[in-house]
């Protein structure tokens, strides 16, 4: 009986992240538009975009290789698997033990690796600029993320997300400076990883500052739809990760009943709304940085994460 419940819960989770991801993006866009006193596109617009893109023909550059056509599926698969392993409404995910937090980050790293390759496949100048900058950002964001994971894992005594979430929800945590620093570091990394505003502008085109858009410039039709969906999934993943580690209240325990699960789902939606709103406010209140200012921004995250780990030793030794 429990296995059936677990399989169901895992399946619901996989579908839930897939269905919610465009909604979260639409919500952030809507809030941003309202903050700028525009009406903005309707909440459902990302779904419509995806469906429309999927129905269109793919226009492939003449010298694109087979790899270029496979990469959208690889990226989507990697991101989807990663996103379905982060606890959202409940902790008892059937396959949560198949990848811990480090493995989830590495899965996203795989997706990024292939995306950077895709940018270079057609052999255009824009693709190269995007890939080259993407790996530069990643070369700082990934270590910052890993060290953040170190500090969180040292506090929780586990890199297994379900266990981390359970520990964070318990009373044993208390207020910790290192947790606060890890939170800030994780937020900075999340902004960079999702190509959000101070680092990259998700809504820009034809600017020398673009990074993510430059890599996917040659994609069209269903391929572009998959890539868009993966980046929406990635945003949802990071928001859920922050919610699960730093706002663990209300996440249903592994053996919870249907009512608790439903409550967990409601609370999860609430967290998404709050965090998405904060993201929109942050993005409207700050300007995009020069490319070579980004290393300092991410370097600050790296330092914060290191500092958090160090402080963890102090409070851990007492």
């Amino acid at each position: 009986m429990t296995t059936l419940r677990d399989i169901l819960s895992q399946g619901v989770q996989m579908c839930l992240v897939l269905l919610l991801a465009p909604l979260l993006t639409g919500f952030v866009r809507k809030v941003k538009a309202r903050l700028l006193r525009r009406r903005g596109p309707p909440l459902m617009q990302p779904y419509r975009d995806l469906i429309r893109l999927m129905r269109k023909d793919v226009v492939l550059a003449d010298n694109a290789s087979w790899l270029f056509r496979v990469i959208p599926y690889l990226m989507f698969a990697g991101t989807w698997v990663a996103a379905s392993l982060v606890p959202t409404f409940g902790n008892g995910l059937l396959f949560s033990w198949s990848a811990d937090l480090i493995a989830i980050i590495a899965l996203l790293g795989s997706a990024r690796f292939f995306q950077a390759l895709a940018g270079m496949d057609v052999g255009t100048a824009f693709g190269g600029i995007g890939s080259s900058r993407e790996v530069m950002i990643a070369s700082l964001a990934e270590p910052a993320m890993l060290i953040t994971v170190f500090s969180v894992a040292m506090i929780a005594g586990s890199t297994q997300l379900s266990n981390v979430a359970e520990f964070m929800g318990s009373d044993a945590v208390g207020l910790r400076v290192s947790l606060g620093m890890a939170f800030v570091a994780l937020t900075i990394v999340a902004l960079a990883e999702n190509a959000r505003i101070p680092v990259d502008n998700p809504a820009t085109h034809l600017e020398l500052t673009m990074v993510h858009e430059a890599m996917v410039l040659e994609y069209s039709g269903r391929h572009l739809a998959l890539i868009d969906l993966s980046s929406q999934l990635k945003l949802l993943l990071y928001v859920s990760l922050i919610a699960c580690v730093f706002l663990p209240w209300g996440t249903a325990a592994a053996d919870a009943g249907v009512v608790r699960l439903g409550l967990g789902a409601l609370l999860y939606l609430g967290k998404l709304v709050v965090l998405g709103f904060l993201l929109a406010v942050f993005e409207t209140s700050i300007a995009k940085m020069r490319v070579f200012r980004i290393p300092e921004f991410l370097g600050a995250a790296l330092m914060l994460a290191l500092l958090a780990t160090l402080l963890r030793f102090v409070s851990g030794s007492l």
Binding site: R176, V177, G180, L307
Partner: peptide
């Protein structure tokens, strides 16, 4: 204790 720790740590930050 945690609050004292938090404040002192914030000073370093």
């Amino acid at each position: 204790f945690d609050i004292a720790h938090l404040l002192a740590g914030s000073l370093v930050l």
